[in-house]
Amino acid sequence: MRIRITDLCFQYRKSLPLFDHLTFEIPLDSVVAITGDSGAGKTTLLKLIAGILQPAKGQIDIIIPGEAGNDLHFGYLFQNPDDQIVHFNVERELAFNLENRNTSPDQMKVKVEKALREYHLTDRRDASPNDLSGGEKQRLALAGMMISNPGILLLDEPCSFLDVFSQIHLYRKIIELRRKGISIIWITQELHEIQMADYVIALKHGRVVWNGQSSRYPKGKEFVRAE
């Protein structure tokens, strides 16, 4: 399974082109880290893959062998959980993704309870997302994404707002999901997270400047550092 990006062109209004005829492939049977400095195009690329943004030109194809693609859908975790959370209550927020997938009320109840426990939000079930701390909001956004069992996860710097215990909880989750064969594309600027991934793609000013196995990623970060 892989994502094939062909001749991709994209620019924001009043800005110079970010992606200018970009062509490359992302392997999908592992954890792939996308790294690069601020403004390199990491989040834009993820949004283009997810279909949140539309390219001006070019194509993004998910190449799936056999019929594995029938139920396959993306789960997207935004950099800022406020961009992701739409409901006024934690429990309703968790049910939202399932409501959009025609889940029966009984099944929905079971899945919401499980997610509340798994992401340590049981005590906050009636709270408004506005009253949650940054880390709690990120856990809610993550739980809301995972509740529909997506096959490909797109994570935009998911640890940014997490405290160290929640961060390790997420790392264990990523390790567990990888074992289950779920594909993960993980935007990160932390060297230890790049090293935890299997494959690394480094972007700079909208171009791929390095890609390969994470074990070969240069520790000096020269590909991340912008001049």
């Binding site: 690069g36 400095d37 601020s38 950099q79 940054g134 710097e157 940014s160 707002f161 600027q189 970060k221 991340v224 550092r225 912008a226």
Partner: peptide, 11 residues
């Protein structure tokens, strides 16, 4: 308050 979130290496 959390000044380095999203800043990257150069930032």
């Amino acid at each position: 308050d959390e000044p380095t979130i999203g800043l990257g290496f150069q930032g």
